[in-house]
Design a protein around this nucleic acid. Structure first.
Lengths: 215, 215
DNA sequence: TAGATTGTTAATCGATTAACAATC
DNA sequence: TAGATTGTTAATCGATTAACAATC
């Protein structure tokens, strides 16, 4: 694992979960969502099957999560579901800012997929005075100069970069110093965030390069 | 490493590169792009500094890549740059299909970021007869029934899913059986591709969940 | 109790890194 | 040659997994 992958999150007073462990959580959740009321308990074998991992791995993951099952019985479906949702931060809606009100930013603002998954667009920013003041979806385009202030005061805690390549790094740094918790970068350039900054940062352009590797 | 992460690519007659190794390549490339003509050689220390990794890690990565430097001197900048670009499949333009000509699909079709990074939109599909035939960007919306045929005949080798949650899994399976090499999923739902299928698949909705974890 | 399944130990596997001989 | 830097070995680290005692 490189530094980036090794980046860990330490909830206060809780065990450290590896990035690999966290990445399996949504796969467990998928089965739990399907089961719902149909079944009160689920075994590590069933979860493993659904997630495509080893049953021992499931038991270790849930144990690391501090969630315990009952020997001979399994894990309580509803409780486990809530526990994982809380862990992933999807037990409540998240406020996201879109930076860049161009072609892509505007489309993302109206994209129902984010909303369906619990991400609400709280703000959209641009530097162009022509765009500032316009209504995009539910929100009015704000001058990009306010990004730092708005982030620091909690208007949003997640940001989507939909800016030109030339501004991406600068905006990312501004967001980081204002304390944003996550950045999803759609700009066609790699953006570097230091490893010691507690931001989970997914660089789409890098992903595309990696993607293309498998072609 | 879960199964998903452990998925490896085996170029014919070439060493196997781990996903972790591949993920560092774009970071090396970034420095090499910056250097260009300014410097003929680069050391593992410089690459390590730029990529935020250990110098020994750099040397091992390049060695695994089959690229060798000169002791006491370093690595040839231009040659290394070409070698990595070839490895990542970004030494040539890639043809991508967008599935779904709705709000998001249309925006992505016109998004210059893809084009700038070497991804050309070769086709856009939809099932709605109202949308089929319309011009979106450079291409005319085609009936989704042709996806399998067009992929199999090489019209594109990468796909972007911009469909509703309900169709995402079905479309992904169709693309996989037609032999697509990469899928980038923008649908607001997780899509499962078996581990033994040689598709590099980045599930944006899963990433979003992981993202939110760090908030 | 008998069967099932967890939780944890110890073994295994793979990736990272320190160290240094090779050599430009 | 003297200094620099690679390429590789061996040590280390961390994550996965087989196995099984604990226990419902």
């Amino acid at each position: 694992m490189g530094n980036q992958e090794a980046q860990l999150y330490r909830p206060p007073g809780m065990r450290v979960l590896s990035r690999a462990t966290v990445s399996r959580m949504p796969r467990y959740l998928r089965l739990l969502d399907d089961i719902r009321e149909a079944q009160a308990t689920v075994s590590s074998d069933e979860l493993a099957e659904a997630a495509g991992v080893n049953p021992a791995n499931v038991r270790r993951d849930l144990s690391d999560l501090g969630f315990h099952g009952t020997r001979g019985v399994g894990y309580a479906v509803g409780d486990l579901r809530s526990r994982i949702q809380r862990e992933l931060g999807i037990d409540h809606r998240r406020k996201v800012a879109i930076v860049g009100a161009g072609n892509l930013g505007t489309a993302l603002a109206g994209y129902s997929g984010f909303r369906q998954r619990g991400f609400d667009v709280a703000a959209i920013y641009d530097i162009s005075s022509e765009r500032v003041g316009r209504l995009v979806g539910d929100v009015i385009v704000t001058d990009a100069g306010r990004i730092g202030h708005d982030c620091a005061t909690g208007l949003f805690d997640m940001a989507i970069l939909a800016v030109p390549a030339t501004s991406a790094q600068r905006v990312a740094e501004e967001l980081v110093s204002a304390g944003v918790s996550s950045i999803l970068n759609f700009a066609p350039v790699r953006v570097i965030v230091p490893n010691d900054v507690p931001v989970r940062h997914v660089d789409l352009s890098t992903e595309l390069q990696i993607l293309s590797y498998y072609g």
